[in-house]
Design a protein around this nucleic acid. Structure first.
Lengths: 224, 224
DNA sequence: CCCCTGTACTTTGTATACATTATTCATTAT
DNA sequence: ATAATGAATAATGTATACAAAGTACAGGGG
């Protein structure tokens, strides 16, 4: 209840953006749990700002699908049902495949070099067993591919979808039995991109996303 | 300049939602043009509300991609570059194909009946030559397919993408030489869905979207 | 005992006031 | 003449005040 939210004042951003980032992080990390109410006065007091930036941040969270508000009742952290997650995963599969296909055509030699580095960093983090680091390096690996699409709107949508999966995916990354599969899949994706083999890339990323989907759904079923 | 915006007070919605819908409509209809500034005080005066609901509506428009704000400078109607439109069309093609594939599996007999009706209504509106009606019936035809996916999040994203194309697509629908192609494409999509032919549906919708993409890009090139 | 209702309280919705930053344009120095 | 400067203006950013709606609970009547 007595959440320990604090603002990162480094950035010279409007408070609404700082509040938005803070709440977003809190939701993704699980500090704010699905269904938990987002009360303006309480949040304002905790973060030491007025209600105005809080309200604007909530409007933004709402559009990101991280919060749901009922008029005159207030906002709460979006709950994720199994059906909702299946819907998200369905979209994500299609867009991840698209991203990989585009990257196949457009990725530069430089980006391929970076991708190789990120792939290695991911493998190293798996050895370390630090789940937070694993999640981080995995994101970085896929970010290289996303950026290679040269389609910022697509990158945006994929990041948004990833957000909604994030909380559940962490559970998946805890299970060591998945590690060999993950390494194999990353290798397959990387090799396809290096060889500009679009069909191979499509197959690899589809496999990768589908496996993750299965695991994420299992987590939700266990929780709910 | 002296826009004639007026609020629709029918709904018992918070003002932010009424303002949001009003501004959204104005942008899509072209009453508010790309690049036009959205000044809070001016809009508040025009709509007879305070700045608070205006600001919240702007935050929502922003997340929809219909407005862009620069901190401490203000918001303006999002401009659409050719590159931006290509990016949107790229995503839309992938998601429209996904929607059509899902619909192939999931569309009910009832929905197929409605789809037939909408197809006919579209053909009739083409004969009428009323562009607004054509745009409307076309949307309704595709909405049946979207709904048949049984994936509300996907429907949401597709509607959002369609919004961003809307203004330019209208030009496409003005050209009578396109009408036979449009009818043929709708028929192909409909037939594939009736026969639950997923490959056929994929090919049909891809063709349909690609043709539209070409036309929309031409419009942008002519304008810019 | 249950339901209904009224009141106190909490929370959101909206308006407004104040603070800060950007812009404009005239003025001045080079 | 042009560029830099600075005051005036106008816009956004933030806080607060007020209004209205929702919620919870106690007390009274059936």
């Amino acid at each position: 209840m007595t959440e320990d939210l604090k603002l990162n004042m480094d950035a010279f951003l409007p408070l609404r953006d700082v509040v938005f980032n803070t709440l977003r992080e809190a939701i993704l990390k699980g500090d704010l749990k699905p269904g938990e109410r987002l009360m303006e006065l309480q949040l304002a007091a905790q973060l030491g700002v007025s209600r105005t930036p809080i309200r604007e941040a909530i409007r933004m969270l709402e559009q990101e699908g991280l919060a749901v508000t009922v008029p005159r009742k207030g906002a709460e952290v979006a709950k994720m049902t199994l059906k909702g997650m299946e819907d998200v995963l369905e979209i994500r599969e299609a867009l991840d495949i698209l991203a990989c296909q585009l990257a196949c055509d457009r990725i530069t030699e430089e980006q391929l070099t970076v991708l190789a580095e990120k792939k290695k960093a991911f493998e190293d983090s798996l050895k370390s067993g630090n789940v937070k680091a694993i999640a981080e390096t995995d994101v970085e690996f896929h970010d290289v591919i996303y950026d290679a699409t040269n389609n910022p709107k697509l990158v945006n949508m994929l990041n948004n979808l990833r957000e909604q999966i994030y909380r559940y995916r962490v559970e998946y990354l805890k299970r060591e039995e998945n590690y060999p599969t993950l390494i194999k899949e990353h290798n397959a994706i990387y090799d396809s991109l290096v060889n500009r083999n679009q069909d191979g890339a499509t197959a690899s990323i589809r496999e990768h996303v589908k496996n993750q989907a299965i695991a994420v759904k299992e987590v939700i079923i266990q929780q709910g």
